[in-house]
Design a protein around this nucleic acid. Structure first.
Length: 474
RNA sequence: GCCCCCUUCGUCUAGUGGCCCAGGACGCGGCCCUCUCACGGCUGAAACAGGGGUUCGACUCCCCUAGGGGGCGCCA
């Protein structure tokens, strides 16, 4: 079992789970499942200033909504700080690290000077070889990693291929802050090692870190995990996704009415592919998923395609299941709680009955909410502009003639349909001349599921009354 | 500025030297179905960033240019 795969998703709790993070989690999850391994969850909360418990909750909630689970408890990186310090001390003892007494101001000046002189911005190694005895009094030092100055560090990356960094390009990074707290690159290495992580899958923005981390692994004599750096997801316009530009938390996608299964399918196709397959179940994804089919170029997020995919999933979801999803969705959308409050057993039955016609026309749960509106409407209905136009353009006359026919008809889909069609034939009118006015009167709009289904779901009394209402006000 | 990476239809992508005058999907146009809107079916337009090589033969390999992205914190 020691050879089994262990991946991890390691978000920092400084905000919601954004779409790129969601995909990274999905890839880690899918790979672990594919290999019969485990996916661990580690919260990278060593930045005490910016980490919040609310963000941790939001991330967990986002993952759960996406349908991604993890093995064991979520690990707090901050809780492991003493172990990180211990490793920093070991590195120090082994001569792979040293104390640096430069102040933040000096470092800032160093950076600015380098920038002004158009030189690479790096730590100059001032304290690398200086005698600690010359240390200024009263200054709390940081510990820096003594990075190799010659040779190269190679990453054999499953997505990026072989990436070579010249060691001279990598400066001596701080691994322990002057307040004794570890920094990211140290913590990650220690945790991934201690947690037995075999495969690291994360965004390419970590590629340079991968080189630095590799050096730390080697200095400790530890085995370096397999690496996969996934290209980033950009906004629809190709610009980088950022908090003020299009980056949404996964809960925003929930509020937009997307189904988790559709989300997973869509995200899987961003940067990963399996031949020409576009629509596949999560089981198939797990079955097919592999690191070497991950591409190298960034992709754009395309809402139109997501919407189309979501429509597929909506139509493919059994009515009762979709109704359940709809009900759990309502609390998350504007106007949803109000609608939810009006869903009793009777309304549930109506929704279920109307679902085949409703879901056929909806791309999102928000669409479903809108198109189901007519079931909730109370008499007398307010007609929208198009509906009113239909009534004005002969609708009133058509319904006036049709009403007695309906009143005399047995109420079920078949007989109502037969009656309306017979009436159309008898009067020489096209079915549309009757269906549209009916739709206007019954739903207050010009679009809806098949009109005979509407008649059926609404029931005889309600249907007849709505028609009478429309005739009165028309 | 320095380092690393990327570049196939508008978008997501297939393609690993000949199967490709480049395939699929979304979107877009047309037609059909039709009580509206959708769905569905058929059909059409639409791409190998540019330039050099290598090779009998390049979307596929190499180099250069251009464009794009990522990184360069006592953030993660």
């Amino acid at each position: 079992m020691s050879s089994s795969v262990i991946t991890r998703f390691a978000p920092s709790p400084t905000g919601f789970l954004h779409i790129g993070g969601g995909r990274t989690a999905l890839f880690n999850w899918a790979y672990a499942k594919n290999r019969g391994g485990k996916m661990l969850l580690r919260i990278e909360d060593t930045d005490r200033e910016r980490s919040t418990p609310e963000a941790v909750d939001a991330i967990l909630d986002g993952l759960t909504w996406l349908g991604l689970d993890w093995d064991g408890e979520a690990v707090s990186q901050y809780a492991r700080a003493s172990r990180h310090r211990e490793v920093a001390e070991i590195l120090l003892a082994k001569g792979h690290a040293y104390r640096c007494y430069c102040s933040p101001e000096e470092l800032q000046a160093m950076r600015e000077k380098a920038e002004a002189e158009k030189r690479p911005v790096r730590y100059d190694g001032t304290w690398r070889d200086r005698d600690p005895a010359t240390a200024p009094a009263g200054v709390k030092p940081v510990i820096r990693f003594k990075s190799p100055q010659q040779g190269e560090t190679v990453i054999e990356d499953h997505a990026q291929g072989r990436v070579v960094f010249q060691n001279k390009e990598l400066d001596d990074l701080i691994i322990l802050r002057s307040d004794g707290n570890p920094t990211y690159n140290l913590s990650v290495v220690v945790d991934d090692h201690d947690m037995g992580v075999t495969h690291i899958i994360r965004g390419v923005d970590h590629l340079t870190n991968a080189a630095r981390q590799t050096q730390i692994y080697k200095a400790m004599g530890w085995h370096v995990p397999e690496m996969t750096h996934v290209p980033l997801i950009h906004g629809p316009d190709g610009a980088k996704l950022s908090k003020r530009h299009g980056a949404l938390g996964v809960e925003a996608y929930r509020a937009m009415g997307y189904l988790p299964a559709a989300m997973r399918n869509y995200l899987a196709r961003l940067g990963w592919s399996h031949g020409d397959d576009e629509i596949f179940s999560t089981e198939q994804m797990v079955d097919w998923f592999g690191l070497d089919a991950i591409g190298k170029s960034p992709s754009r997020f395309d809402f139109v395609k997501l919407e189309n995919l979501n429509g597929h999933y909506m139509r493919g979801t059994p009515d009762a299941e979709l109704l359940a999803a709809f009900i759990t969705f309502l609390p998350h959308v504007a106007g949803g709680p109000e609608m939810l409050g009006r869903i009793d057993a009777g309304m549930k039955a109506k929704l279920l009955r109307a679902m085949p016609g409703l879901k056929e026309r909806a791309k999102t749960l928000v669409d479903l909410m809108k198109s189901a509106q007519f079931l909730f409407a109370e008499r007398p209905l307010t007609l929208d502009d198009k509906a009113r136009q239909i009534m004005a353009d002969g609708g009133v006359a058509a319904l006036t003639a049709l009403l007695p026919v309906l009143e005399a008809t047995e109420w079920n889909v078949q007989s109502v349909e037969a009656a309306v069609k017979a009436h159309a034939e008898a009067t020489g009118a096209k079915l549309g001349k009757l269906a549209q006015p009916l739709r206007a009167a019954l739903t207050g709009t010009s679009t809806s599921p098949g009109i005979f289904d509407v008649l059926d779901v609404l029931g005889r009394a309600e249907s007849l009354n709505r028609i009478a209402d429309a005739l009165k006000s028309g």
